[in-house]
Design a binder for these strands. Sequence first.
DNA 1: AGCCAGTAGTGCGCATCGCGCAGTAGTGTC
DNA 2: GACACTACTGCGCGATGCGCACTACTGGCT
Lengths: 110, 110
Amino acid sequence: MDTTQLLKGVLDAAVLAVVEAEDGYGYDVVRRLRSQGLDDVGDASVYGTLRRLYADGALTSYVVPSAAGPHRKYYGITTHGRQMLAIQRKEWQEFAATVGGVLGTRNEAA
Amino acid sequence: MDTTQLLKGVLDAAVLAVVEAEDGYGYDVVRRLRSQGLDDVGDASVYGTLRRLYADGALTSYVVPSAAGPHRKYYGITTHGRQMLAIQRKEWQEFAATVGGVLGTRNEAA
DNA sequence: AGCCAGTAGTGCGCATCGCGCAGTAGTGTC
DNA sequence: GACACTACTGCGCGATGCGCACTACTGGCT
Protein backbone atom coordinates (compact mmCIF):
# COMPACT_ATOMS: atom_id res chain seq x y z
CA MET A 1 0.00 0.00 0.00
CA ASP A 2 1.07 3.50 -0.74
CA THR A 3 0.95 6.08 2.00
CA THR A 4 2.83 8.61 -0.10
CA GLN A 5 -0.13 10.91 -0.52
CA LEU A 6 -1.24 10.56 3.06
CA LEU A 7 2.16 11.72 4.22
CA LYS A 8 1.75 15.05 2.50
CA GLY A 9 1.30 17.81 4.98
CA VAL A 10 2.20 15.55 7.86
CA LEU A 11 5.89 15.03 7.29
CA ASP A 12 6.68 18.55 8.44
CA ALA A 13 4.93 17.97 11.73
CA ALA A 14 6.45 14.52 12.14
CA VAL A 15 9.96 15.81 11.57
CA LEU A 16 9.41 18.72 13.93
CA ALA A 17 8.10 16.35 16.59
CA VAL A 18 11.08 14.05 16.26
CA VAL A 19 13.56 16.90 16.46
CA GLU A 20 11.67 18.43 19.36
CA ALA A 21 12.10 15.20 21.27
CA GLU A 22 15.82 15.40 20.70
CA ASP A 23 18.21 17.14 18.33
CA GLY A 24 19.08 14.94 15.42
CA TYR A 25 20.81 14.83 12.08
CA GLY A 26 19.14 13.79 8.85
CA TYR A 27 20.13 10.18 8.71
CA ASP A 28 19.10 9.77 12.31
CA VAL A 29 15.74 11.49 11.86
CA VAL A 30 14.98 9.13 8.99
CA ARG A 31 15.67 6.13 11.18
CA ARG A 32 13.64 7.45 14.07
CA LEU A 33 10.64 8.16 11.85
CA ARG A 34 10.84 4.70 10.34
CA SER A 35 11.13 3.01 13.71
CA GLN A 36 8.03 4.86 14.84
CA GLY A 37 5.88 3.39 12.10
CA LEU A 38 6.52 5.64 9.14
CA ASP A 39 8.23 2.67 7.55
CA ASP A 40 8.41 3.79 3.99
CA VAL A 41 9.37 7.41 4.33
CA GLY A 42 12.03 8.26 1.76
CA ASP A 43 15.34 9.67 2.93
CA ALA A 44 15.28 12.39 0.30
CA SER A 45 11.90 13.52 1.61
CA VAL A 46 13.25 13.93 5.10
CA TYR A 47 16.39 15.75 4.04
CA GLY A 48 14.28 18.03 1.91
CA THR A 49 11.86 18.66 4.74
CA LEU A 50 14.68 19.46 7.14
CA ARG A 51 16.11 21.97 4.70
CA ARG A 52 12.70 23.54 4.14
CA LEU A 53 12.01 23.80 7.85
CA TYR A 54 15.45 25.27 8.40
CA ALA A 55 14.83 27.83 5.66
CA ASP A 56 11.55 28.69 7.36
CA GLY A 57 13.33 29.34 10.64
CA ALA A 58 11.76 26.39 12.41
CA LEU A 59 15.07 24.67 12.96
CA THR A 60 18.62 25.63 13.84
CA SER A 61 21.57 23.73 12.56
CA TYR A 62 25.07 22.92 13.70
CA VAL A 63 27.68 20.63 12.28
CA VAL A 64 29.33 17.98 14.37
CA PRO A 65 32.25 15.94 13.04
CA SER A 66 31.54 12.24 13.22
CA ALA A 67 33.89 9.58 14.49
CA ALA A 68 32.73 7.09 11.89
CA GLY A 69 31.75 8.80 8.66
CA PRO A 70 31.17 12.24 7.25
CA HIS A 71 30.20 15.20 9.38
CA ARG A 72 26.70 15.30 10.79
CA LYS A 73 24.42 18.27 10.38
CA TYR A 74 22.39 18.38 13.54
CA TYR A 75 19.08 20.18 13.71
CA GLY A 76 17.39 21.61 16.77
CA ILE A 77 13.95 23.13 17.08
CA THR A 78 13.50 26.87 17.48
CA THR A 79 10.77 28.77 19.27
CA HIS A 80 9.19 29.39 15.93
CA GLY A 81 9.39 25.69 15.17
CA ARG A 82 7.66 24.87 18.42
CA GLN A 83 4.85 27.22 17.54
CA MET A 84 4.52 25.68 14.11
CA LEU A 85 4.43 22.23 15.63
CA ALA A 86 1.74 23.24 18.10
CA ILE A 87 -0.42 24.57 15.29
CA GLN A 88 0.14 21.54 13.13
CA ARG A 89 -0.64 19.16 15.97
CA LYS A 90 -3.93 20.93 16.43
CA GLU A 91 -4.68 20.95 12.72
CA TRP A 92 -3.93 17.28 12.56
CA GLN A 93 -6.24 16.46 15.44
CA GLU A 94 -9.11 18.39 13.93
CA PHE A 95 -8.49 17.00 10.49
CA ALA A 96 -8.20 13.43 11.73
CA ALA A 97 -11.43 13.77 13.67
CA THR A 98 -13.20 15.18 10.61
CA VAL A 99 -11.92 12.48 8.30
CA GLY A 100 -12.75 9.83 10.86
CA GLY A 101 -16.26 11.19 10.86
CA VAL A 102 -16.60 11.16 7.10
CA LEU A 103 -15.19 7.67 6.81
CA GLY A 104 -17.20 6.46 9.74
CA THR A 105 -14.14 5.29 11.60
CA ARG A 106 -14.20 7.79 14.39
CA ASN A 107 -12.56 6.99 17.71
CA GLU A 108 -13.83 9.60 20.10
CA ALA A 109 -11.01 11.83 18.95
CA ALA A 110 -10.58 15.35 20.25
CA MET B 1 -5.19 27.29 7.95
CA ASP B 2 -4.54 25.25 4.88
CA THR B 3 -5.55 21.64 4.90
CA THR B 4 -4.81 21.24 1.20
CA GLN B 5 -1.87 18.95 1.72
CA LEU B 6 -3.57 16.93 4.41
CA LEU B 7 -6.44 16.24 2.04
CA LYS B 8 -4.17 14.49 -0.39
CA GLY B 9 -4.77 10.81 -0.41
CA VAL B 10 -7.92 11.18 1.66
CA LEU B 11 -10.25 12.83 -0.82
CA ASP B 12 -10.70 9.60 -2.73
CA ALA B 13 -11.84 7.79 0.37
CA ALA B 14 -14.01 10.68 1.51
CA VAL B 15 -15.78 10.86 -1.84
CA LEU B 16 -16.26 7.11 -1.93
CA ALA B 17 -17.70 7.16 1.56
CA VAL B 18 -20.14 9.92 0.73
CA VAL B 19 -21.31 8.20 -2.43
CA GLU B 20 -21.56 4.90 -0.61
CA ALA B 21 -23.93 6.48 1.86
CA GLU B 22 -26.13 7.59 -1.01
CA ASP B 23 -25.78 8.15 -4.72
CA GLY B 24 -24.99 11.74 -5.51
CA TYR B 25 -24.00 14.14 -8.24
CA GLY B 26 -20.91 16.33 -8.13
CA TYR B 27 -22.39 19.51 -6.81
CA ASP B 28 -24.18 17.54 -4.12
CA VAL B 29 -21.11 15.58 -3.10
CA VAL B 30 -19.23 18.84 -2.67
CA ARG B 31 -21.93 20.18 -0.37
CA ARG B 32 -22.11 17.00 1.65
CA LEU B 33 -18.35 16.92 2.15
CA ARG B 34 -18.33 20.55 3.22
CA SER B 35 -21.19 20.07 5.63
CA GLN B 36 -19.31 17.20 7.21
CA GLY B 37 -16.33 19.34 8.09
CA LEU B 38 -14.25 19.38 4.94
CA ASP B 39 -15.12 23.05 4.66
CA ASP B 40 -12.60 24.19 2.17
CA VAL B 41 -12.61 21.38 -0.34
CA GLY B 42 -12.56 22.80 -3.84
CA ASP B 43 -15.32 21.89 -6.26
CA ALA B 44 -12.87 21.19 -9.06
CA SER B 45 -11.09 18.71 -6.80
CA VAL B 46 -14.25 16.77 -6.18
CA TYR B 47 -15.32 16.74 -9.81
CA GLY B 48 -11.85 15.58 -10.74
CA THR B 49 -11.88 12.90 -8.07
CA LEU B 50 -15.26 11.62 -9.20
CA ARG B 51 -14.04 11.35 -12.77
CA ARG B 52 -10.88 9.58 -11.67
CA LEU B 53 -12.80 7.13 -9.52
CA TYR B 54 -15.22 6.52 -12.36
CA ALA B 55 -12.33 5.87 -14.73
CA ASP B 56 -10.95 3.42 -12.18
CA GLY B 57 -14.22 1.52 -12.11
CA ALA B 58 -15.01 2.48 -8.55
CA LEU B 59 -18.14 4.37 -9.52
CA THR B 60 -20.98 4.04 -11.99
CA SER B 61 -22.65 7.01 -13.50
CA TYR B 62 -26.07 7.94 -14.83
CA VAL B 63 -27.50 11.21 -15.96
CA VAL B 64 -30.73 12.57 -14.56
CA PRO B 65 -32.38 15.66 -16.03
CA SER B 66 -32.97 18.29 -13.39
CA ALA B 67 -36.15 20.24 -12.87
CA ALA B 68 -34.29 23.38 -11.95
CA GLY B 69 -30.99 23.63 -13.78
CA PRO B 70 -28.73 21.59 -16.01
CA HIS B 71 -28.71 17.79 -16.00
CA ARG B 72 -27.14 16.01 -13.06
CA LYS B 73 -24.55 13.31 -13.40
CA TYR B 74 -25.22 10.91 -10.56
CA TYR B 75 -22.57 8.54 -9.30
CA GLY B 76 -23.07 5.28 -7.47
CA ILE B 77 -20.48 3.03 -5.87
CA THR B 78 -19.52 -0.29 -7.45
CA THR B 79 -18.34 -3.48 -5.82
CA HIS B 80 -14.84 -2.50 -6.76
CA GLY B 81 -15.38 0.90 -5.19
CA ARG B 82 -16.54 -0.69 -1.98
CA GLN B 83 -13.40 -2.78 -1.87
CA MET B 84 -11.24 0.26 -2.47
CA LEU B 85 -13.03 2.12 0.27
CA ALA B 86 -12.57 -0.73 2.72
CA ILE B 87 -8.84 -0.76 2.01
CA GLN B 88 -8.53 2.97 2.29
CA ARG B 89 -10.46 3.08 5.53
CA LYS B 90 -8.03 0.58 6.96
CA GLU B 91 -5.01 2.44 5.64
CA TRP B 92 -6.34 5.63 7.12
CA GLN B 93 -6.87 4.08 10.52
CA GLU B 94 -3.36 2.67 10.62
CA PHE B 95 -1.84 5.84 9.32
CA ALA B 96 -3.77 8.05 11.73
CA ALA B 97 -2.71 5.89 14.63
CA THR B 98 0.92 6.04 13.54
CA VAL B 99 0.91 9.79 13.06
CA GLY B 100 -0.90 10.26 16.33
CA GLY B 101 1.90 8.31 17.94
CA VAL B 102 4.65 10.35 16.34
CA LEU B 103 2.97 13.64 17.20
CA GLY B 104 2.13 12.43 20.67
CA THR B 105 -1.56 13.12 20.18
CA ARG B 106 -2.83 9.61 20.17
CA ASN B 107 -6.43 8.89 21.15
CA GLU B 108 -6.61 5.18 21.73
CA ALA B 109 -7.17 4.78 18.02
CA ALA B 110 -7.62 1.38 16.42
C1' DA C 1 -36.68 41.42 -23.49
C1' DG C 2 -32.27 41.76 -20.73
C1' DC C 3 -29.65 40.59 -16.94
C1' DC C 4 -28.20 38.39 -12.97
C1' DA C 5 -28.07 34.61 -9.59
C1' DG C 6 -28.08 29.80 -8.65
C1' DT C 7 -27.25 25.19 -10.29
C1' DA C 8 -24.10 21.81 -12.66
C1' DG C 9 -20.26 20.30 -15.16
C1' DT C 10 -15.64 20.53 -17.95
C1' DG C 11 -10.93 21.94 -19.08
C1' DC C 12 -6.44 24.11 -18.33
C1' DG C 13 -2.49 25.14 -16.08
C1' DC C 14 -0.23 25.75 -11.58
C1' DA C 15 1.82 24.63 -6.99
C1' DT C 16 3.04 21.52 -3.43
C1' DC C 17 5.59 17.91 -1.91
C1' DG C 18 7.15 13.14 -1.40
C1' DC C 19 10.15 9.92 -4.08
C1' DG C 20 13.69 7.55 -6.88
C1' DC C 21 18.13 7.89 -8.30
C1' DA C 22 22.60 9.50 -9.02
C1' DG C 23 26.48 11.67 -7.18
C1' DT C 24 29.92 13.17 -3.50
C1' DA C 25 32.57 12.27 0.53
C1' DG C 26 34.45 10.30 4.78
C1' DT C 27 35.72 5.94 7.59
C1' DG C 28 36.64 1.13 8.37
C1' DT C 29 37.21 -3.76 6.59
C1' DC C 30 38.73 -7.61 3.88
C1' DG D 1 42.14 -0.88 -3.25
C1' DA D 2 37.30 -2.53 -3.89
C1' DC D 3 33.47 -2.48 -1.06
C1' DA D 4 30.15 -1.31 2.57
C1' DC D 5 28.24 1.92 5.71
C1' DT D 6 27.41 6.54 7.01
C1' DA D 7 25.75 11.18 5.62
C1' DC D 8 24.23 14.81 2.68
C1' DT D 9 22.93 17.17 -1.90
C1' DG D 10 20.64 17.87 -6.34
C1' DC D 11 17.54 16.82 -10.19
C1' DG D 12 13.56 15.70 -12.34
C1' DC D 13 9.15 13.18 -11.94
C1' DG D 14 4.43 12.09 -10.63
C1' DA D 15 0.19 12.46 -8.04
C1' DT D 16 -3.26 15.44 -6.69
C1' DG D 17 -5.78 19.46 -4.94
C1' DC D 18 -6.92 24.28 -6.46
C1' DG D 19 -8.11 28.60 -8.92
C1' DC D 20 -10.18 30.31 -12.78
C1' DA D 21 -12.59 30.62 -16.88
C1' DC D 22 -16.13 28.85 -19.68
C1' DT D 23 -20.48 26.48 -21.03
C1' DA D 24 -25.29 25.76 -20.17
C1' DC D 25 -29.94 25.61 -18.18
C1' DT D 26 -33.73 27.74 -15.11
C1' DG D 27 -36.05 31.36 -12.80
C1' DG D 28 -36.68 35.96 -10.81
C1' DC D 29 -36.28 41.03 -11.11
C1' DT D 30 -36.55 45.16 -13.62
